[in-house]
Design a protein around this nucleic acid. Sequence first.
DNA 1: TAAGAGTCAATACC
DNA 2: GGTATTGACTCTTA
Length: 712
Amino acid sequence: MYQNWREEDLEAAMTSSSGYPRDSFGTDALWDTESFGRTPTSSSGTPYVSIPVQYPNNNGLLYQSQNAPWSAQTNDGIMDKDNYFNENLENVVEKERCNEMENANPVVYADDENTNLLEEKSLFPAYQSTSGSDNFWYSNPYKAWNDNPITLKPTEPMGNNMHQLETLIPKNIDTEELCEKLTREIHNYNICCQNFAKKVLNKHPRVLRRMLKDPKPWNELRTGRLNYIRIHNWLNLPLEKRLGILDMELMEWKTGTSETGNVDPLNASLPDYDNLDTNQLTELVAQEMNTHKISRGKFAKNRQPIKESQDANDEYNHQPLQTSTNIGSSDDLVIPDSLFDSSYCDTNDYQYENQLLHSSTIRMYNQQRNSDTENSNDQYNNQPHSSNDQPIDPYRQRSFQNGADFNVNSERRQSSHSVDSVFNKMARRRQTPPGRRSPSLDDVTYLDNSYRKGNDDESSQSTSSSSADFKAFKYYKGLLAAPRKIIDDAYRRSSGFHGTQSTSSSGSQASSSSSDSEAFAYYEGLLAAPLANDTALDTKILCDSILQEMKTRYISQSIFATRVANRSQGTLSELLRKPKPWDSLKSGRGTYVRFFNWYQLPENQRMEIVDKKINWPVPEKKEVAGRRATEAATGVPAKKKPRTEFHPVQRSALQTIFEENPKPSADVMAHIARNLKLDIGAVENFFQNTRKRTNDQEKCKRHPPNDYQEEN
DNA sequence: TAAGAGTCAATACC
DNA sequence: GGTATTGACTCTTA
C-alpha cells in the first residue's frame, strides 16, 4: 500500500519543465547546485528551493550525488547519464552543462580519508559552518564520523579454539596471580606445557614459560595481553570446556576396568526402569542417534561404552567457539604438531618444563575435592598428597588420532577408583528421592558463578576447577551416557522437578506440563545469569559462533529467538548479524549475555533448550505500558498504526534528503511530508529509524580489535 | 521534550 | 519455511 500516491502524482513528480527529472518534492531545486545554501525566501531569482535543505558550500565535492540528476533512483534502479539524456532531455546544452558539472566535481565521498584530502585542498573544512544557525552542518552530530577516522583491521581467521578464549575480555588482569594460578594448575594436574601452549595460546611453549617465569604487569603490556586473556578465560571456563580445549578428558571416563568393577553405566541396573518399554526405547535411541548423527556401527560396536558415549558427543562438548569444518577438533589449529616436538625445545626450556610438568605420569586424584564425592570407602579419597603420590588428573591427554598415547593404559587402570566413586555416586543419585539435591540448580549456579567470577578462594584455587565444576561435569557426562527419556526423568527427579512426564523427544506433548515450567525456570535462571563485573564480551566473535552453531545444529532463528534470546526472530537476526561492540551497548547487553550463557552450557542442555519437540512455556512478553494505559483509559484495544509502505520514489527522495540532512527540523519534516504526500509520523519515523540504523552500522564497523599483537 | 536505544512484528525476500 | 528488512512503537536518557 503506497500511502496517498497516485499515478498522476508520480508522473508529475518525475517530470519538470526544466528537463531535469523533478525531485520528489515537485521542484527542480534539489538538483540545482546553484541554489545550495539558499533559503526558501531567497530573492536571487534562482530556482526556488522548496525544501530548505542547505549544503555546506558550493564546492559540491562531498556530495556528488545531488549534482548528478541521472543518479536518481528509478523503479528500475539507478539511471545512468546516457539513458537519462536519451530518455528525458535530448538537450545538448543541458548535457554539456552536466558534463561540466561532473568534471568540476570529481566523485569524492565523505569518507574520512577523503575528507582530510578535501580539507587540505579546499582550505576550509567540508563541513565548516558557513553562516546562520539554520545551517545544519553547524550542529551536525554526524560530523563526528569524519572527525574520528576508523581504521578497520582485518579480522583474524576464526577457525580455531582460540576464539573461545577471546570472547570475554577482562578489563584488568593480575598477571602475577594469574600465572601463579596457572602454574599450580599445570603442576597439580600434570598438564603438558607444550599442549597448553599450543591449544590455549597457539604459541611455542617457550612463550608460555617466559610468561609463567616472569609475568609482566597488565598495565605495562602493550602487545601481549591476548595471551593473558586466553589464560584467564581458560581458567575461568568450566572443567568440561577446559578439557575440550586441551583435547583432554577426565581419565576416569576412559578407564575400562576398575577394582570395583561397576564403572560401566550402560550395563548398570536402573531400578526405576525394570519394565522398560523396549519398543519405545528403541525408537528413542534411533531418534537420538539420528539427531546426533551417531553411526549404527559406532553404537553397535561400543566396547567401551563410556568412551564411545562421550566421543559421540564430543563434537558438542568440546567444540570451540568458532568452528571450522572440523568441529570440535583441535587439528585445525594453526601450528602444526611438528613444531611442538620436544626436540624443538632447548635444554633450559626442557628442564624448566620438567619442573612444571611430569608429563609421562598419570596421577591419582586424592585431593581434598574428592572429599565431597560421598564415597567414604574410596581408599584414595583422603590420601595425603606427596610428591610421589599421583593426584587426580582430570586433564589427561586424549589419545591422538595417530594412536600415540596408548602406553599408559596400565596407569589408567590404577586410576580407576575415582571412577567408581563417580558412578557409585551417580547410581545413588538416581535413587535419590525428589528434593534431594543432586545436582541441583544451586550446583549449576555455583558452577556458573565459579567460572564467571573466578575463584578467589585459595583452597579452590589450588585446583582451579571447583568441586561444583567437577560434580557437574560428572553429572552431565553421566547424562550423556544414558538414553534420553531415562535421562530426562532421572534428571527431573534428581534435580527437584516434580513433574514426571518427560518432555523431550517423544513429541507427543501438546501442552506444557508443570515439569516443563520448572525446567523452563531452571534454564531461564541459567540464561539470565549476569556476567561478572569488569568483563566484556566480544559480541562479534560470540555472534559468529552462535550463527555457526545454529547452522551446524539446524537451529532456526525463530526457536532460538524464543527460547534463548527471548526476542523476536527479526530482532535476533539483526542482533546476530550486526552485533554492536560491547562498549556501545546499553540495556541491550543482556541479550548478548543470554547468548553467551547458552553457548557455555553443556551440549545436552543447550540442545534441550532449543529442542522443537519440547513444548516450553511461552515466556511472558514485555508489557507495553503505553498501549496498556491507552487501552485501560479508552477500554478499546489500542490500534497500531498500519505499516506504511513507501513508494520507491518516496523512499528515494527521503533517502536523498537524509544524506543531506539526517536531522531535519519538525518544520522541514512537515514540509517533506506534505510534498511527498506522506503522514508526518511516517516521515519522522523514517528519519529516526534511518539515523539509528546508520549509526548502528557505524558502530558495527567499530568492533575493537581483539587480536592484540602477538608477542612472537 | 527530543533523541537515542531497543525492540516488535509485518512483510519482503530467498 | 526460514531469514532479512524496516516501519512503528516503548522506554530511557540527556
